[in-house]
Amino acid sequence: MVATSGAARLRPGRTRRTPAADQLQAGSALALGISTLWFSLLVLIPLAAVVAAAAADGWSDFWNVLTSSQTAAAIVLTVTQALMVTAVNVVMGTALAWVLVRDRFWGRRALDIVVDVPFALPTIVAGLVLLALYGQNSPVGVNVANTRFAVFLALAFVTLPFVVRTVQPVLEALEPEVEEAAQSLGASRVTTFRRVILPALVPAITAGAALSFARGISEYGSLVLLSGNLPNHTEVASVRVLTYIENGNRAAAASVSAVLLVVALLAIIALDLLQRRLRRHEG
Protein backbone atom coordinates (compact mmCIF):
# COMPACT_ATOMS: atom_id res chain seq x y z
CA MET A 1 0.00 0.00 0.00
CA VAL A 2 3.00 2.20 0.46
CA ALA A 3 3.77 1.69 -3.18
CA THR A 4 0.35 2.69 -4.52
CA SER A 5 0.00 5.84 -2.44
CA GLY A 6 3.49 6.82 -3.59
CA ALA A 7 2.52 6.35 -7.21
CA ALA A 8 -0.67 8.33 -6.78
CA ARG A 9 1.13 11.25 -5.23
CA LEU A 10 3.92 11.32 -7.73
CA ARG A 11 1.74 11.71 -10.77
CA PRO A 12 1.53 15.54 -10.98
CA GLY A 13 4.54 17.08 -12.59
CA ARG A 14 4.43 20.65 -11.32
CA THR A 15 7.57 22.36 -10.17
CA ARG A 16 7.27 24.71 -7.24
CA ARG A 17 10.61 26.33 -6.47
CA THR A 18 11.77 26.59 -10.01
CA PRO A 19 15.44 26.95 -10.80
CA ALA A 20 14.84 26.18 -14.46
CA ALA A 21 14.23 28.46 -17.41
CA ASP A 22 10.65 28.72 -18.56
CA GLN A 23 11.03 26.68 -21.71
CA LEU A 24 12.29 23.71 -19.70
CA GLN A 25 9.15 23.56 -17.60
CA ALA A 26 7.03 21.68 -20.09
CA GLY A 27 9.92 19.40 -20.95
CA SER A 28 10.80 18.61 -17.36
CA ALA A 29 7.17 17.96 -16.45
CA LEU A 30 7.03 15.51 -19.33
CA ALA A 31 10.28 13.87 -18.21
CA LEU A 32 8.90 13.59 -14.69
CA GLY A 33 5.72 12.03 -16.02
CA ILE A 34 7.57 9.50 -18.15
CA SER A 35 10.06 8.62 -15.42
CA THR A 36 7.32 8.18 -12.86
CA LEU A 37 5.26 6.06 -15.22
CA TRP A 38 8.30 3.94 -16.01
CA PHE A 39 9.17 3.56 -12.34
CA SER A 40 5.58 2.65 -11.52
CA LEU A 41 5.31 0.04 -14.25
CA LEU A 42 8.64 -1.50 -13.40
CA VAL A 43 8.81 -1.28 -9.62
CA LEU A 44 5.80 0.12 -7.79
CA ILE A 45 2.94 -1.73 -9.46
CA PRO A 46 4.69 -5.13 -9.45
CA LEU A 47 5.58 -4.74 -5.76
CA ALA A 48 1.99 -3.67 -5.04
CA ALA A 49 0.88 -6.81 -6.87
CA VAL A 50 2.90 -8.90 -4.41
CA VAL A 51 1.12 -7.28 -1.47
CA ALA A 52 -2.23 -7.64 -3.22
CA ALA A 53 -1.63 -11.31 -3.98
CA ALA A 54 -0.60 -11.90 -0.36
CA ALA A 55 -3.75 -10.22 0.90
CA ALA A 56 -6.09 -11.71 -1.71
CA ASP A 57 -7.07 -14.79 0.28
CA GLY A 58 -7.51 -12.94 3.54
CA TRP A 59 -5.58 -12.55 6.75
CA SER A 60 -6.06 -16.11 8.01
CA ASP A 61 -4.61 -17.68 4.85
CA PHE A 62 -1.71 -15.26 4.97
CA TRP A 63 -1.08 -16.17 8.59
CA ASN A 64 -1.46 -19.91 7.91
CA VAL A 65 1.22 -19.76 5.23
CA LEU A 66 3.65 -17.95 7.50
CA THR A 67 3.06 -20.27 10.43
CA SER A 68 3.19 -23.55 8.51
CA SER A 69 6.12 -25.38 10.05
CA GLN A 70 8.46 -25.43 7.05
CA THR A 71 7.93 -21.76 6.20
CA ALA A 72 8.15 -20.64 9.82
CA ALA A 73 11.41 -22.58 10.14
CA ALA A 74 12.74 -20.89 6.99
CA ILE A 75 11.83 -17.42 8.27
CA VAL A 76 13.31 -18.05 11.71
CA LEU A 77 16.51 -19.39 10.15
CA THR A 78 16.78 -16.41 7.80
CA VAL A 79 16.25 -13.84 10.54
CA THR A 80 18.63 -15.55 12.99
CA GLN A 81 21.42 -15.95 10.46
CA ALA A 82 20.98 -12.42 9.15
CA LEU A 83 21.15 -11.06 12.71
CA MET A 84 24.25 -13.10 13.51
CA VAL A 85 25.97 -12.00 10.32
CA THR A 86 25.02 -8.39 11.00
CA ALA A 87 26.55 -8.63 14.48
CA VAL A 88 29.78 -10.01 12.99
CA ASN A 89 29.74 -7.27 10.36
CA VAL A 90 29.35 -4.55 12.98
CA VAL A 91 32.54 -5.73 14.67
CA MET A 92 34.59 -6.87 11.69
CA GLY A 93 33.33 -4.11 9.39
CA THR A 94 34.25 -1.38 11.85
CA ALA A 95 37.63 -3.02 12.46
CA LEU A 96 38.22 -3.27 8.72
CA ALA A 97 37.27 0.36 8.15
CA TRP A 98 39.60 1.36 10.98
CA VAL A 99 42.52 -0.60 9.51
CA LEU A 100 41.85 0.76 6.02
CA VAL A 101 41.77 4.38 7.23
CA ARG A 102 44.27 4.52 10.10
CA ASP A 103 46.74 1.74 9.40
CA ARG A 104 49.49 1.87 6.81
CA PHE A 105 50.99 -1.36 5.52
CA TRP A 106 51.93 -3.10 2.32
CA GLY A 107 48.83 -4.50 0.63
CA ARG A 108 46.38 -2.08 2.24
CA ARG A 109 45.25 -0.87 -1.18
CA ALA A 110 44.71 -4.48 -2.29
CA LEU A 111 42.68 -5.13 0.86
CA ASP A 112 40.58 -2.09 0.02
CA ILE A 113 39.77 -3.55 -3.40
CA VAL A 114 39.18 -7.11 -2.13
CA VAL A 115 36.53 -5.78 0.28
CA ASP A 116 34.47 -4.75 -2.76
CA VAL A 117 34.69 -8.15 -4.45
CA PRO A 118 31.49 -9.46 -2.82
CA PHE A 119 29.62 -6.44 -4.26
CA ALA A 120 30.89 -7.19 -7.74
CA LEU A 121 30.65 -10.97 -7.88
CA PRO A 122 27.43 -12.47 -9.19
CA THR A 123 25.70 -14.16 -6.26
CA ILE A 124 25.75 -17.60 -7.88
CA VAL A 125 29.50 -17.19 -8.37
CA ALA A 126 29.81 -16.17 -4.72
CA GLY A 127 28.20 -19.48 -3.78
CA LEU A 128 30.54 -21.39 -6.05
CA VAL A 129 33.53 -19.48 -4.71
CA LEU A 130 32.72 -20.46 -1.13
CA LEU A 131 32.02 -24.01 -2.20
CA ALA A 132 35.51 -24.20 -3.67
CA LEU A 133 37.15 -23.64 -0.29
CA TYR A 134 34.49 -24.84 2.14
CA GLY A 135 32.69 -27.52 0.12
CA GLN A 136 33.20 -31.18 -0.71
CA ASN A 137 36.48 -30.81 -2.57
CA SER A 138 37.96 -28.37 -0.10
CA PRO A 139 41.75 -28.24 -0.29
CA VAL A 140 41.85 -27.68 3.47
CA GLY A 141 39.43 -30.48 4.28
CA VAL A 142 36.67 -28.28 5.66
CA ASN A 143 33.26 -29.24 4.35
CA VAL A 144 30.39 -27.12 5.63
CA ALA A 145 28.17 -27.46 2.53
CA ASN A 146 24.51 -28.18 3.34
CA THR A 147 24.87 -27.04 6.97
CA ARG A 148 23.57 -23.96 8.74
CA PHE A 149 27.10 -22.63 8.93
CA ALA A 150 27.05 -22.55 5.12
CA VAL A 151 24.11 -20.15 5.32
CA PHE A 152 26.06 -17.96 7.72
CA LEU A 153 29.13 -18.09 5.51
CA ALA A 154 27.24 -17.10 2.36
CA LEU A 155 25.53 -14.19 4.12
CA ALA A 156 28.83 -13.05 5.68
CA PHE A 157 30.41 -13.06 2.22
CA VAL A 158 27.76 -11.04 0.40
CA THR A 159 27.27 -8.50 3.22
CA LEU A 160 30.95 -7.91 4.03
CA PRO A 161 31.30 -4.49 2.33
CA PHE A 162 28.26 -2.73 3.84
CA VAL A 163 29.51 -1.66 7.27
CA VAL A 164 33.04 -1.08 5.95
CA ARG A 165 31.83 1.25 3.23
CA THR A 166 29.49 3.26 5.45
CA VAL A 167 31.99 3.66 8.30
CA GLN A 168 35.08 4.35 6.19
CA PRO A 169 34.16 7.84 4.91
CA VAL A 170 32.99 8.97 8.38
CA LEU A 171 36.23 7.79 9.91
CA GLU A 172 38.20 9.58 7.23
CA ALA A 173 36.36 12.83 7.95
CA LEU A 174 36.92 12.71 11.73
CA GLU A 175 39.01 15.57 13.02
CA PRO A 176 42.17 14.29 14.72
CA GLU A 177 42.14 17.31 17.06
CA VAL A 178 39.37 15.91 19.23
CA GLU A 179 41.23 12.64 19.70
CA GLU A 180 44.46 14.46 20.40
CA ALA A 181 42.69 16.63 22.95
CA ALA A 182 41.24 13.56 24.65
CA GLN A 183 44.62 11.89 24.76
CA SER A 184 46.39 14.99 25.99
CA LEU A 185 43.87 15.10 28.81
CA GLY A 186 45.06 11.66 29.81
CA ALA A 187 42.55 9.39 28.11
CA SER A 188 43.94 6.04 27.08
CA ARG A 189 43.59 4.83 23.49
CA VAL A 190 40.76 2.51 24.44
CA THR A 191 38.94 5.29 26.29
CA THR A 192 39.46 7.67 23.38
CA PHE A 193 38.00 5.12 20.99
CA ARG A 194 35.07 4.31 23.23
CA ARG A 195 34.19 7.86 24.30
CA VAL A 196 35.24 9.99 21.35
CA ILE A 197 35.47 7.98 18.13
CA LEU A 198 32.79 5.35 18.61
CA PRO A 199 29.91 7.80 19.29
CA ALA A 200 30.74 9.56 16.02
CA LEU A 201 30.67 6.27 14.16
CA VAL A 202 27.44 4.89 15.62
CA PRO A 203 25.08 6.34 12.97
CA ALA A 204 27.28 5.02 10.16
CA ILE A 205 27.60 1.62 11.82
CA THR A 206 23.82 1.48 12.28
CA ALA A 207 23.28 2.37 8.63
CA GLY A 208 25.70 -0.34 7.52
CA ALA A 209 24.07 -2.82 9.86
CA ALA A 210 20.61 -2.04 8.46
CA LEU A 211 21.85 -2.55 4.90
CA SER A 212 23.60 -5.74 5.84
CA PHE A 213 20.53 -7.11 7.63
CA ALA A 214 18.23 -6.24 4.73
CA ARG A 215 20.59 -7.90 2.29
CA GLY A 216 20.99 -10.96 4.52
CA ILE A 217 17.23 -11.43 4.80
CA SER A 218 16.76 -11.29 1.05
CA GLU A 219 19.77 -13.30 -0.12
CA TYR A 220 19.15 -16.07 -2.59
CA GLY A 221 21.79 -16.70 -5.27
CA SER A 222 24.78 -17.45 -3.09
CA LEU A 223 22.82 -20.01 -1.07
CA VAL A 224 21.53 -22.11 -3.96
CA LEU A 225 24.61 -24.28 -4.41
CA LEU A 226 26.08 -23.91 -0.93
CA SER A 227 23.33 -24.52 1.59
CA GLY A 228 21.63 -27.50 -0.04
CA ASN A 229 18.21 -25.94 0.72
CA LEU A 230 17.25 -28.71 3.13
CA PRO A 231 13.70 -28.12 4.44
CA ASN A 232 13.56 -27.22 8.14
CA HIS A 233 17.33 -27.13 8.28
CA THR A 234 19.10 -24.87 5.77
CA GLU A 235 16.19 -23.56 3.71
CA VAL A 236 15.93 -19.75 3.85
CA ALA A 237 12.92 -17.54 3.15
CA SER A 238 13.88 -16.67 -0.47
CA VAL A 239 14.33 -20.33 -1.33
CA ARG A 240 10.94 -21.02 0.24
CA VAL A 241 9.40 -18.38 -2.05
CA LEU A 242 10.96 -20.02 -5.07
CA THR A 243 9.70 -23.46 -4.02
CA TYR A 244 6.19 -22.05 -3.69
CA ILE A 245 6.44 -20.50 -7.16
CA GLU A 246 7.71 -23.73 -8.68
CA ASN A 247 4.80 -25.59 -7.08
CA GLY A 248 2.40 -23.10 -8.62
CA ASN A 249 1.35 -21.69 -5.25
CA ARG A 250 1.71 -17.97 -6.00
CA ALA A 251 -0.46 -16.82 -3.10
CA ALA A 252 1.83 -18.50 -0.59
CA ALA A 253 4.91 -17.22 -2.44
CA ALA A 254 3.45 -13.72 -2.28
CA SER A 255 2.78 -14.04 1.46
CA VAL A 256 6.41 -14.80 2.28
CA SER A 257 7.53 -12.19 -0.26
CA ALA A 258 5.34 -9.56 1.37
CA VAL A 259 7.12 -10.14 4.67
CA LEU A 260 10.51 -9.80 2.98
CA LEU A 261 9.31 -6.68 1.21
CA VAL A 262 8.11 -5.01 4.40
CA VAL A 263 11.45 -5.71 6.09
CA ALA A 264 13.28 -4.26 3.08
CA LEU A 265 11.08 -1.13 3.12
CA LEU A 266 11.56 -0.63 6.84
CA ALA A 267 15.32 -0.91 6.44
CA ILE A 268 15.31 1.68 3.67
CA ILE A 269 13.12 4.11 5.58
CA ALA A 270 15.28 3.74 8.69
CA LEU A 271 18.31 4.36 6.54
CA ASP A 272 16.83 7.47 4.96
CA LEU A 273 16.00 8.92 8.38
CA LEU A 274 19.50 8.10 9.62
CA GLN A 275 21.16 9.75 6.64
CA ARG A 276 19.09 12.85 7.11
CA ARG A 277 20.13 13.02 10.74
CA LEU A 278 23.75 12.50 9.76
CA ARG A 279 23.62 15.32 7.24
CA ARG A 280 22.05 17.66 9.75
CA HIS A 281 24.90 16.93 12.17
CA GLU A 282 27.47 17.67 9.51
CA GLY A 283 25.78 20.88 8.49
Binding site: A3, G6, R9, L10, P12, G13, R14, T15, R16, R17, T18, P19, A20, S28, L32, T36, F39, V43, L44, P46, L47, A49, V50, T123, L211, A214, R215, I217, S218, E219, Y220, G221, A237, S238, V239, V241, L242, I245, R250, A253, A254, S257, L260, L261, A264, L265, A267, I268, I269, L271, D272
Partner: peptide, 29 residues
Protein backbone atom coordinates in the same frame (compact mmCIF):
# COMPACT_ATOMS: atom_id res chain seq x y z
CA UNK B 1 17.01 20.12 -9.72
CA UNK B 2 13.24 20.17 -9.29
CA UNK B 3 10.79 20.35 -6.45
CA UNK B 4 7.57 18.43 -6.90
CA UNK B 5 5.06 16.72 -4.63
CA UNK B 6 6.24 13.24 -3.68
CA UNK B 7 9.87 14.00 -4.44
CA UNK B 8 11.09 12.67 -1.12
CA UNK B 9 9.01 9.50 -1.45
CA UNK B 10 10.46 8.94 -4.91
CA UNK B 11 13.99 9.40 -3.62
CA UNK B 12 13.39 6.81 -0.90
CA UNK B 13 11.61 4.38 -3.22
CA UNK B 14 14.44 4.53 -5.75
CA UNK B 15 16.55 2.61 -3.23
CA UNK B 16 14.00 -0.17 -2.79
CA UNK B 17 15.49 -2.45 -5.47
CA UNK B 18 18.76 -2.50 -3.52
CA UNK B 19 17.30 -4.37 -0.59
CA UNK B 20 14.39 -6.31 -2.07
CA UNK B 21 15.12 -9.98 -2.55
CA UNK B 22 15.69 -10.87 -6.22
CA UNK B 23 13.18 -13.67 -5.74
CA UNK B 24 10.55 -11.11 -4.72
CA UNK B 25 11.43 -9.02 -7.79
CA UNK B 26 10.90 -12.04 -10.01
CA UNK B 27 7.57 -12.89 -8.40
CA UNK B 28 6.40 -9.27 -8.59
CA UNK B 29 7.07 -9.10 -12.33
Amino acid sequence: RYRFPGRRILSVLIDVPLSVSPVVVGLAL
